[in-house]
Deep mutational scan, measured.
Amino acid sequence: SEEEIREAFRVFDKDGNGYISAADLRHVMTNLGEKLTDEEVDEMIREADIDGDGQVNYEDFVQMMTA
């Protein structure tokens, strides 16, 4: 549901600035027990970053979650 997606976005957007940065993503993945290299984190950001601004905004996140 849209509310679940919004809630998930809030979990990833640690600093609440409306964007998921590589640092935000790394933090959440580490908490989930996933040890990722910087390259892996950057690749995840690139794949999710639809508009190419280097971070994942809510619209990018929705597209990723509903793809």
Rank of each mutant, 00 (worst) to 15 (best):
R26P: 02
V11Y: 08
E43K: 15
A48F: 11
T66G: 09
V28C: 02
V56P: 01
D60I: 15
M65E: 01
Y58F: 07
D15N: 13
I20V: 05
G33V: 11
I20A: 01
E43V: 11
Q55D: 07
D60E: 12
M29I: 14
R10T: 04
I50W: 09
G18I: 00
G16V: 02
T37C: 06
R6T: 03
D24W: 03
F9K: 01
M64K: 14
M64Q: 09
E43P: 02
G54R: 05
T30C: 08
V28F: 02
N57H: 13
T30D: 11
Q55W: 12
D24P: 00
G33A: 10
V41A: 04
E39L: 10
S21L: 07
G16W: 03
D24F: 03
K35D: 09
D13M: 01
A48S: 09
D51W: 10
Q55F: 13
Q55I: 09
D15A: 07
V11D: 08
Q55T: 07
I50P: 11
A67C: 10
D15K: 06
Y19L: 08
M29G: 01
M29Y: 03
D15I: 06
I45F: 11
G33Y: 14
I5D: 00
N17A: 06
G18T: 01
L25W: 03
E7D: 11
V56R: 01
N57V: 06
I50Y: 07
F61I: 14
E2S: 08
T66Y: 04
G54W: 03
E34H: 15
L25C: 03
E39W: 11
T37S: 12
F9G: 01
D38Q: 12
F9T: 01
E59L: 09
T37Y: 05
E43I: 14
G18N: 03
L25Y: 02
D49I: 12
I45N: 01
G33K: 12
G52Q: 12
S21F: 05
Q55P: 04
A23P: 04
N17Y: 05
G54H: 05
L32W: 09
G52I: 11
L32S: 03
Y58S: 01
K14I: 10
T66C: 08
F9Y: 01
V41W: 14
L36G: 03
Q63K: 15
Q63V: 07
Y58Q: 02
G52M: 09
M29N: 02
Q63S: 08
S21W: 04
G54T: 05
K14D: 07
D15G: 07
D60G: 12
E7C: 07
E39Y: 11
V56Y: 08
K35P: 11
G16F: 05
Q55V: 09
A48D: 02
I20P: 00
T30S: 14
M65L: 15
K14W: 09
H27V: 11
T37F: 05
L36K: 06
I45P: 00
V56D: 00
F9N: 01
D49Q: 14
I50R: 13
V41P: 01
S1P: 05
N57C: 14
E40P: 02
E3G: 08
R26G: 03
A23I: 07
E59H: 08
E7Y: 03
E7K: 10
A67N: 13
G18E: 01
V62N: 01
E34N: 14
E7H: 06
A22Q: 09
H27K: 13
M29C: 03
R46A: 09
E34L: 15
D24N: 07
G18V: 00
M64F: 09
Q63L: 09
K14N: 08
D51R: 14
E43L: 14
D24S: 05
E47T: 14
A22T: 13
Y58D: 00
A67W: 01
V28G: 03
D13S: 01
D24Q: 06
D60K: 15
G54M: 04
D60F: 15
E4A: 11
L36M: 11
N17D: 07
K14C: 06
V62L: 15
R6C: 06
M64E: 04
Y19H: 05
R46L: 08
A8G: 04
H27Y: 13
D13T: 01
Y58L: 08
G54Q: 04
T30M: 14
F12N: 02
E47Q: 15
A8F: 05
R10D: 04
M29P: 00
I5E: 00
L32Y: 12
K35S: 09
G54D: 05
E2D: 07
D49C: 12
G18F: 02
A67Q: 14
G52P: 13
D53S: 13
V56G: 01
N17I: 05
S21E: 05
E59Y: 06
D15R: 03
E39A: 12
D49T: 14
E34K: 15
V28R: 00
D38S: 12
D38Y: 09
F61L: 10
V62R: 04
M65A: 04
G18P: 00
V56F: 08
R26K: 12
I45H: 02
D49M: 13
I5P: 00
E34I: 15
F9P: 00
S1K: 12
R10S: 07
R26C: 03
V56Q: 00
V62G: 01
A22H: 09
R10Q: 10
A8W: 07
I20W: 00
G18L: 01
D60T: 14
T30A: 14
E59P: 02
N31T: 13
G16E: 04
D38H: 09
V62H: 03
D53L: 12
S21Y: 06
F61E: 00
N17F: 07
G52S: 13
D60V: 15
V62W: 05
Q63N: 11
E39G: 07
K35H: 14
D38E: 12
M44D: 01
F12W: 06
V28S: 02
K14F: 14
M65K: 03
